[in-house]
Nucleic acid binder design. Structure first.
Lengths: 200, 200
DNA sequence: GTCTATATGCCGATAGAC
DNA sequence: GTCTATCGGCATATAGAC
């Protein structure tokens, strides 16, 4: 009946997204997803060959929007990298206080499928984290910071580490601690700027 | 037939440990655990009222040994804290290269039960991480480092962040990056030592 | 493309014998 | 304390009608 053949598909992914992110992937059955999408299980299996395929579509659908929310925080190009990175941690600090926050969907998916290195989910999760790290690296390089790749890795570690601690303790304070650590690491590196008049 | 009534219980926990850590908690059924322990499901339910109770026993059984392995790395009290912390990250770097390594059981359990804040698993995971953080704090304070609580939190964040990244990318290099970041943070703090002749 | 109905097996948990 | 046997339900996935 619907004119757009992909509308049902999108509804299924939306239902899967809500349930998977809230409860975990293995904890949710296809019955619940079909019910939540307002279709039958048979229709779900018309649009997705297996549950794994739906899982992959769920995670893939989160890749760009997740990174995009962080990219939207820092539209200006001329700010110091340190300030931009602080905004990233501030955003984490706010969003983790949402009652619906359940940590990082990519990390949680990788944790659920820790024994399946070739699972589609693992590839999507790894790709997403690499994209995030590369984005951080670009921010640092745009500010002429030496050793941007190493520093981007360390900030990435601080970010996911903070997410993990907040998930465990339900304490947003870990976002501030991570932010302070990132600021300290960046200011250490700034003393070794490649080019730049203010190399202290 | 066995004289020690708790022997079966221990076998069940050992079987659960191997399966839960390797595959994830929700991915493993009680049938598989009973089979692996060499008893029937009915016996499992004689020793544990529910699967949740077995899960709790599994995680609880990992608490002290996990922390103990790190404590065993640094028996001497007179070393600089920075060196002790490096040993912690070096141990991670080595152990994560084991083919059976699947990241942190506590973090993965918390991720699986992200929507159940009151679940026994969550309490045990939070308690373990707090113990680890307190242990780090003691190491720092023993070396007279100012702001030990904040710094211990940051090292904790770096540690779990590295674990997360390694789990996702299967790249032990993140342990080295985290170690370097920790060293940098500690050396920044050392310039503000409480007491100490070498306060620069 | 979506439906009703079903296949097949595993899920956590239990009854009752010994 | 451990067994055999089984409960009702839910898991992923499919057959075939419309």
């Amino acid at each position: 009946m619907p004119r757009d053949p992909s509308k049902t598909r999108r509804k299924l992914i939306a239902a899967a997204d809500a349930l998977f992110y809230n409860q975990g992937i293995r904890a949710v059955g296809v019955d619940a997803i079909a019910l939540n999408a307002g279709v039958t299980k048979r229709t779900l299996y018309y649009h997705f060959r297996t549950k794994d395929e739906l899982i992959a579509a769920y995670l893939d659908g989160r890749d760009q929007p997740t990174l995009g929310r962080y990219q939207a925080l820092i539209p200006e190009a001329k700010e110091p990298a340190a300030l931009k990175v602080q905004r990233v941690f501030e955003h984490l600090s706010k969003s983790c206080q949402d009652r619906q926050w359940r940590g990082c969907s990519f990390l949680r998916a990788a944790a659920e499928f820790a024994n399946l290195p070739g699972h589609p989910t693992r590839l999507i999760a790894a790709r997403h984290k690499k994209r995030f790290e590369s984005w951080l690296e670009n921010i640092l390089r745009a500010d002429g910071i030496a050793g941007a790749p190493d520093l981007a890795r360390q900030i990435m570690i601080l970010f996911d580490g903070a997410v993990a601690q907040i998930l465990i303790h339900r304490d947003p304070g870990y976002a501030s601690s991570a932010a302070a650590a990132a600021a300290s690491l960046i200011s250490s590196k700034r003393q070794k700027r490649k080019s730049g008049r203010s190399a202290r």
